[in-house]
Amino acid sequence: MTTATTTFDTKHEDMILIKLTVIQHDSKFDYYGKRLATCSSDRTIKIFDVTQDNKPLAELKGHEGPVWQVAWAHPQFGSILASCSYDHKVFIWREGQNNQWSKIYEYKHLSSVNAVAWAPHELGLVLASASSDSTIVVNTYREQTNTWDPKVIKDAHDINCNAISWAPSAPLASLTNQPDQQAQQTLQTRLVSGGGDHLVKVWVLEGNEWKCEFKLDKHSDWVRDVAWASNIGLPYDTIASCSQDQNVYVWRRDTNSTGNWNATKVNKFNTVVWRVSWSLMGNLLAVSTADNQVTLWKEGLDGNWTNVSTLTDQNSTTAPSQ
């Protein structure tokens, strides 16, 4: 009856000057699961080695506002981390020797940057960022010139872009076994974004332009997070979205047809839903809600989603009394 967890203190510090509460905003493992990057409102990013007693490896400073999200690039590009912050900036950090991290690129949005996501590594070193300036920017690394090439999707969402997620680049039409079609499908690069206009939008790269392929309109308030599930070969695409309106939807679309997305409501929660996250196989969905609960959901064979586990902090109800 033991619950075994790894717990360690990231020691993100309170900033004395401004007396704000430090809130960790994101924690991500690198590809090999050896290092954990956390970012917080104390404007720093910290990297820990979880294989060696959670030894702090590095602390990245440079952001001038709370850091919202971090993302590790695929290790084939080296040790690269992206971060985004309220200070309107997206930083890309690279590790040189011995935990010496340096900033190799900076992109400035016109407003707070809410999310960053690396494209599947097959597409190269490509980073998408979603900002409150209502743009999505896709920065592509050009190896030949050693430069980053930003591609701006203007007015991606009317109010602001809260979340972004890439479609897996694996061949989607594996089951069809039609080589020509498959090749065509594979070429298409998609990403999904959620915004303050209550919409979930699916974008597809056509030529050199990002086009809005679908507008998924079910939420009645800000979409807080979107997540595209990885595809292990099933003939459909799956997207999860969560919103301020307390709903979580899972969107499915048959890869073979050009059909529309069908929504399944996972659950209506009692409070705002902040994050959704797919497990590696795309069969388990972690939903984080504002009541400090993380619930895990699994799709039954009947297509309904059931809560298989709850991660909760039982002290939270009695927490800060002062």
Binding site: V22, F29, G33, S277, N292, Q293, D313, P320
Partner: peptide
Amino acid sequence: LMNRPTCFGIFSPQGHLVYVNSHHS
């Protein structure tokens, strides 16, 4: 916009669930 979750769980590629709860005492 500024309001951010104090608690979240994210799957890592390896299948770990990273859980952060800044809120509790």
